[in-house]
Design a protein around this nucleic acid. Structure first.
Length: 470
DNA sequence: TGAAATGTTGGGGCG
DNA sequence: ACGCCCCAACATTTC
């Protein structure tokens, strides 16, 4: 029997992996592969570093099962052709991705392999449902969350497959490169050590995280999830990004929780969060132009600002607006940011600083270890007011009001802004540890005054919005 | 998943 | 007892 190449990308797991389950069922020898192509080397510093950690963990998991993860660097098609030639494999299987770049690459690879007489198959598994499976009554796709949620919950989400106990190995293994030789984490600089303390890497860690959430935080998730100082969120976005846990496994586990008595009130909200992730990916699939500037024709005459000194202050957590700076520093120190803070910092950049959301998106792509093009494009456009299902432009978050409402005890601000804390904690000081020396930060320096007056910034944004409408 | 301005209501102090 | 004013609390409108 000819071996089969399993090309792993964003599905670094053995549980709930439809491609892997189907491959094991064939009984053919399997050659698991990870390829560092442009889509990997082109990632921002933090997500690239995090992906490498995930690949290393997945390689260990496979090694424990008595098999291997073959590592190669180069253009994906060329690498796959070389592997087929070296191993005599009959074809390549992979799990689907839905952003335009990945689709274009994968479609070309599928064509090229098939023309050459090789098998090329793609599988679901990254989403709760495929984009073409959830349709409106008219046969179109949903643009707005609420009707999508109704349609999705009415569907039967496929049951997750169990992790295979072992993988049939080929008679001989192709050569593998060494992960360390790629140096893909180098750009993280001093931040790597700091962020590493917060990351939860690999499939086992992801499952432990889900169980921890369902054992405790899910009971107060509904009330506490809006408070960035509380530890009430699942933290699973990081693992979902790299496929270290499958959405169908989470869905099944949530259904179990919902069927239990007493029923944890937060379980449905976790399910809603999963649906949110699904519609983001579906929209990117159905309308990839959302990701391109042309989408915003109607905003072309809006006086968006490009990059600026103020935007740089925003990136460095030095706007003088404590909740904004706390969010930006949390991202730099932990690689993630609480969702409430994401909305506040995004609103501040695009409204108070009137800056094009792509400036912010670019920095998020650099810093977030749960960086995901679909979720971030939708999130930024929701805040900026463009895109489908967007918040109206005049919905402007006031960072001070938001802080009073959602961080009343100042615990979040004190945790991440050492200058403001009565007794600076490690996370707050770590920001100074992780930041580049070229920023010349000093924890002993006084906390900066606000770079814009909140009332003035709001008025300026509203005035520009009014002018545009005329 | 907003905030601020404006409108309405009702209780209490006071002459 | 009554009208008046003030103001907080809540509701509605507007951006």
């Amino acid at each position: 029997m000819q071996p089969l190449i399993l090309w792993f990308r964003r599905d670094l797991r053995i549980d709930d992996n439809p491609m892997l389950a189907a491959a094991v069922a064939t009984g053919r020898p399997l050659i698991p592969v990870f390829i560092a192509d442009d889509s990997v080397t082109g990632l921002g510093a933090a997500p690239r570093w995090r992906l490498v950690q995930g690949v290393a963990a997945f390689g260990e998991t496979l090694a424990e099962m008595g098999t291997r993860l073959i590592l190669r660097r180069g253009a994906a098609l060329a690498v796959l052709r070389a592997l087929i030639a070296e191993s005599g494999a009959g074809g390549v299987w992979w799990g689907r991705l839905y952003d335009p770049q990945a689709r274009e690459r994968d479609a070309a690879i599928k064509r090229a392999l098939r023309v050459a007489g090789h098998e090329a198959r793609s599988f679901p598994g990254h989403l709760l449902a495929e984009p073409w499976e959830v349709q409106t009554g008219q046969g179109g796709h949903y643009r707005v969350y609420t009707p999508f949620w109704k349609a999705l919950s009415a569907r039967e989400v496929p049951a997750p497959s169990a992790a295979p106990a072992s993988l049939p190995a080929p008679a001989s293994w192709p050569e593998s490169e060494r992960l360390e030789s790629w140096h893909l984490g180098a750009a993280m600089g001093r931040g790597a050590v700091v962020v590493a303390r917060h990351a939860r890497i690999g499939e086992a860690a992801a499952q432990a995280r889900l169980e921890r959430f369902l054992a405790g935080p899910v009971w107060e998730y509904r009330e506490a999830r809006d408070f960035p100082a509380s530890d009430a969120t699942s933290g699973l976005s990081e693992n979902l990004t790299y496929g270290e846990i499958g959405p169908r496994r989470i869905w099944a586990r949530v259904q179990m929780a919902l069927a239990a008595a007493p029923r944890p009130p937060g379980a449905e909200h976790l399910a809603k969060g999963m649906a949110c992730r699904a519609i983001d990916h579906h929209l990117i699939y159905k309308t990839p132009e959302i990701l391109t500037p042309q989408r915003r024709e109607e905003w072309d005459d809006f006086p968006w600002r490009g990059d600026s000194d103020e935007a740089e202050r925003w990136r460095r957590g030095l706007t003088g607006e404590p909740l904004v700076d706390a969010g930006m520093r949390q991202m730099y120190v932990t690689g993630t940011m609480h969702n409430r803070a994401r909305m506040v910092v995004a609103s501040y950049l695009s409204k108070h600083l009137m800056t094009d959301w792509r400036v912010g998106q670019k920095w998020f792509a650099e810093c977030l270890i749960d960086w995901d093009p679909a979720a971030n494009a939708m999130g930024w456009q929701w805040v900026a007011g463009s895109g489908p299902d967007a918040a109206p432009f005049f919905r402007i978050f006031n960072p001070a009001t938001q802080a009073a409402k959602f961080d009343p005890g100042m615990a979040y601000r004190h945790r991440f802004i050492a200058e403001l804390a009565p007794c600076p904690c490690r996370d707050g000081l770590d920001f100074f540890e992780a930041a580049p020396r070229s920023w010349r930060l000093d924890p002993a320096a006084p906390y900066p005054a606000p770079i814009v007056d909140l009332a003035e910034g709001r008025a300026r944004a509203l005035a520009a919005y009014q002018a545009r409408r005329r």
